[in-house]
């Protein structure tokens, strides 16, 4: 790892000041992606601004029907939170399936969303649940947040402070995990919420997480696994690599969507 300077500001304003005008600086949360990336010299931030010392950055609360999860909340805390299990069990299950127990004790929801790895789990949850990313300067809806591989609508120096998830009637997440990394080879999050039925696919798209209109239309008409049998799933724009070809991934999208639809009904 190259040399870096570590900062642990106590307030969001101090964090923003450390980031402002310093394009060598990067935010650090759980570090479960950033630190390995730094070891490989794929990132070499001159300054690391750790947000875990900021009051209120971690924690989970329900505001009426809305679940609010602080950006620095770990996957382990989301997985075992009573509020999450009650409001959106699918989200708790998703968190429980990320990485392994040790990684879940460090990795955070804000870090995962800001990184927007094309095979990460949380982007699918945010997009399917129609959540909102709250930053130090504004709120960004899920539909506006993801802009492509490892790219989001976040501006230079903008800091995610929390993520809000509206209540949904039903939801489930089905992941076909890459067995070594536990990332999604393909995973599908289905939800029936205030914005209607939304289906988000991760692990498959060349541009990262995406919604699948065909699956959404089919589930809106008839929420059942069988309704997805004849939905056309195009291989266009799907990743093809040594883990799986585009047509294999297309097939997995249907298989995972069916599993998720069934799991959501069974709850």
């Amino acid at each position: 790892m190259y040399e870096t300077r570590y900062h642990k500001p106590a307030t969001i304003d101090d964090a923003a000041a450390l980031l402002s005008g310093n394009d060598e600086a990067m935010l650090l949360a759980g570090g479960q992606t950033l630190l390995p990336t730094m070891k490989q010299h794929l990132a070499a931030p001159g300054d690391l601004v750790d947000i875990r010392g900021i009051d209120g950055m971690a924690g989970i609360r329900a505001e009426g029907d809305t679940l609010v999860i602080g950006a620095a909340t770990t996957h382990a805390d989301v997985a075992r939170s009573d509020a999450v299990r009650k409001h959106c069990p699918a989200l708790a299950e998703l968190a429980e399936g990320i990485g392994d127990a040790a990684v879940r004790n460090m990795g955070t929801i804000g870090g995962s969303l800001a990184n927007n790895d094309p095979s990460a789990c949380y982007p699918a949850a945010l997009l399917a649940l129609g959540g909102t990313v709250v930053t130090n300067t504004r709120e960004i809806t899920a539909d506006d947040f993801f802009e492509g591989l490892f790219t989001t609508a976040l501006d230079e120096g903008e800091i995610i402070t929390a993520v809000r998830f509206p209540a949904v009637k039903k939801a489930a997440y089905a992941k076909f995990a890459q067995p070594a990394s536990r990332f999604a080879l393909v995973a599908v999050f289905v939800a029936d919420g205030p914005g209607g039925v939304r289906v988000a696919v991760t692990g498959a798209g060349e541009d990262g997480v995406f919604r699948h209109e065909g699956l959404e239309a089919a589930l809106s008409g008839d929420w059942s696994a069988a309704a997805l049998d004849d939905v056309e799933i195009s291989e266009d724009g799907l990743m093809s690599d040594f883990h799986g070809s585009a047509d294999y991934r297309a097939n997995l999208i249907r298989a995972m969507a069916k599993r998720a639809a069934e799991a959501a009904s069974a709850r």
Partner: peptide, 16 residues
């Protein structure tokens, strides 16, 4: 174990 929870020591900064 850090504060009672298992973590990977190779993926945490000492100063943090």
């Amino acid at each position: 174990h850090v504060n009672g929870k298992v973590v990977k020591a190779c993926t945490a900064l000492a100063v943090s």
